[in-house]
């Protein structure tokens, strides 16, 4: 019970800090923090899929592309408001995700990684090919965001969209926490840890694995939309394979075993490149790569996982180190 109270307190503090930040930091930082919220949503989806359900996706950039392009095309062609187009983006991306989820049912571990990685690399060229719809290499320019008239004097457009993004993030985090804490979460984790045992206990693997894929893709679609709107521009090259890899890096560095990891990961992938870029344009990749390897070797729980363990002062439980589980079927004897 104490743990739950502690957690609620932590959630409340984080929520208050997020709510007050736009009034403390300069406008440009508010803009950057908007992206943090969107990345956190995408990474949360990845944590559900990869961390909780054990299905690896190296192609989540493709779902961000779906979300971004749906919003851009609807705004550009039909002048649709983003209140309508963001849910549509989530639905379209979720359906694509369920489709890929059906494929993923037949692919295990490394093969799924390979297929999704290929999708990530192919995404920009597919977007370029269907230029009639996507605007080709030129991309699509979106209309600028404006705060509603009632709030026009109170909030700048940047602050307004910051709150929109974080409101989405808040709702999606709460919904995810609700589901992961119950039957759904237990089923996903059971399938990850031992599929055969889970199935014997009556967990339907097809339903839950496809659900995880669709869920995760819908979140990535929303994130893609929330990134495209303040950027006011989508183009094929914004959705390179590097984006997909970056999202996975965010999840792993942040902590793939806990929802807090999404928040930590979002902060990392938004700000780490900005800090490191001052040294050299290529430096962020090197830092990412080395950090990724180091995290895997020495702290597989990521930032959030490691912090949680320190705060809760408990020894690492077997479930913590999802990423360090040895494969019982393929042990190399030493």
């Amino acid at each position: 019970m104490r743990l739950r109270a502690d957690r609620n307190l932590a959630v409340a503090i984080v929520a208050i800090v997020i709510a007050l930040l736009p009034f403390i930091v300069p406008s440009f930082s508010t803009f950057e923090l908007t992206y943090v919220g969107a990345y956190a949503i995408a990474i949360l989806g990845l944590i559900v899929l990869t961390g909780m359900n054990g299905q690896i996706s190296l192609g989540h950039g493709a779902f961000l592309a779906v979300g971004g392009y749906v919003v851009a095309i609807l705004a550009h062609r039909f002048g649709l408001s983003f209140w309508l187009s963001i849910p549509i983006a989530a639905i379209v991306s979720g359906i694509v995700g369920i489709g890929l989820g059906f494929v993923a049912l037949r692919l295990e571990g490394v093969y799924l990684a390979l297929a999704t990685f290929s999708l990530a690399v192919a995404t920009p060229s597919i977007l370029k090919r269907f230029g009639d719809l996507t605007g080709g290499v030129m991309g699509i320019v979106l209309p600028p965001v404006a705060a509603p008239k009632v709030l026009a004097g109170v909030l700048t457009p940047v602050q307004w969209f910051y709150y929109v993004t974080w409101a989405f993030a808040g709702v999606l985090f709460l919904v995810t926490a609700r589901f992961l804490g119950g039957r759904v979460g237990r089923s996903l984790r059971a399938l990850r840890d031992n599929e055969i045992a889970a199935v014997s206990f009556g967990v339907n693997p097809h339903f839950y694995k496809t659900l995880a894929f669709g869920w995760s893709a819908a979140f990535a679609g929303i994130a893609g939309a929330l990134i495209a709107i303040p950027t006011a521009y989508v183009s094929p090259d914004s959705y390179s394979s590097l984006l997909s890899i970056t999202l996975l890096i965010g999840a792993v560095l942040g902590g793939i075993d806990t929802m807090w990891g999404a928040l930590a990961g979002g902060v990392m992938i938004e700000f780490l490149p900005l800090w490191v870029q001052k040294i050299n344009n290529a430096a962020p990749s090197v830092v990412y790569g080395v950090a990724l390897i180091l995290v895997m070797l020495v702290m597989p729980g990521g930032i959030a996982g490691t912090l949680l363990r320190l705060v809760q002062r408990r020894p690492p439980a077997p479930g913590d180190a999802v990423l360090r589980r040895t494969e019982p079927t393929r042990a190399v004897e030493q």
Binding site: G109, P284, G289, L292
Partner: peptide
């Protein structure tokens, strides 16, 4: 001896490191 997910992520780390270097 770790699972495939771990090794995949480590090789991804190598991918992005070499690209950056």
């Amino acid at each position: 001896r770790a699972g495939p997910l771990t090794i995949v992520i480590v090789t991804l780390g190598l991918l992005i490191t070499f690209n950056g270097l």
